[in-house]
């Protein structure tokens, strides 16, 4: 729990995402270490899913690559264990309800705790369904992150009241992926959350440039960047660690200055 509260303690948080196992787990392990060193405040590790309905084409393909390269939930737990011997950066898993449910939510969250995962993000687990997984998160001390979207409107109050750790604000309608422009009034979404509970808000979906990140952090406590990083992984393959490190450093600087 403490590692999550540390994420937003100093300045604005930069939260990068990579799909675990893309292009392989050895590279993912190096990526996590490099991103932590470059200033990432929390790292989101995607457990690949065969049918990621909330993802755009970039992360869909990353999931396909990771699964084809043999990534499994158990191998990803092993990788996190190895990472934890060298690095204490806060870590969140991002995956769909099915890999958790089929693994057994109790066993999944027990393993999360045991290997050092701090939070869990499940994009197809809305407020009404969180009873499937939340009791096991609480039992094992892993923070279940709540999401709000531009279409949430009156739902924001209920979600914010019970949110823990931070609120994941989805910047735009649609699926994950780089966007030229984000038109949602993020400031208003965040104000609605903060009116209910004083909890950090991080914005994700569509953010790729330092300018966008800077603009978002005028109202948000952090930014989450996935597809832009996964694109670098796709482009550079096993040689992606350097380019991703540089990118994370640049983004973190943009929101710190």
């Amino acid at each position: 729990m403490s590692r999550i509260s540390d994420v937003f303690k100093n300045n604005k948080a930069f939260i990068p995402f990579v799909t675990a196992g893309d292009p392989n787990l050895a590279v993912t392990e190096q990526l996590v270490l490099a991103m932590a060193e470059a200033g990432a405040d929390l790292i989101e590790l995607g457990i690949p899913f065969s049918d990621p309905v909330a993802e755009g084409i970039v992360i869909q393909k990353a999931d396909e690559r990771a699964l084809a390269a043999g990534a499994t939930t158990d191998k990803i737990f092993e990788m996190v264990r190895r990472i934890r011997t060298r690095c204490q950066v806060p870590l969140a898993f991002m995956t769909y309800a099915n890999p958790i449910f089929v693994y057994g939510a109790d066993r999944f969250l027990a393993n999360c705790r045991q290997c050092g995962i701090d939070a869990l993000i499940v994009p197809d687990l809305p407020f009404e369904e969180k009873g499937e997984i939340l009791p096991f998160c609480e039992k094992h001390g892993v923070t279940l992150i709540s999401l709000i979207a531009p279409s949430s409107r009156e739902r924001i109050r209920r979600i914010a009241e019970e949110a823990q750790g931070f609120v994941y604000c989805v910047s735009s309608m649609g699926v994950t992926g780089v966007r030229k422009e984000i038109t949602t009034d993020i400031g208003q979404m965040i104000a609605l959350v903060k009116g209910v509970q004083d909890i950090p808000c991080a914005v994700g979906f569509g953010i790729s440039t330092p300018d966008q990140a800077k603009k978002m952090t005028q109202s948000a406590d952090g930014v989450i960047v996935g597809s832009a990083i996964v694109k670098l992984v796709e482009q550079y393959g096993e040689n992606c660690v350097g380019p991703v490190r540089d990118y994370v450093r640049e983004m973190k600087q943009a929101i710190t200055s």
Partner: peptide, 10 residues
């Protein structure tokens, strides 16, 4: 149940 992204809930 309703296991869908928050974006679709409304």
């Amino acid at each position: 149940g309703q296991f869908i992204p928050e974006t679709l809930m409304n």
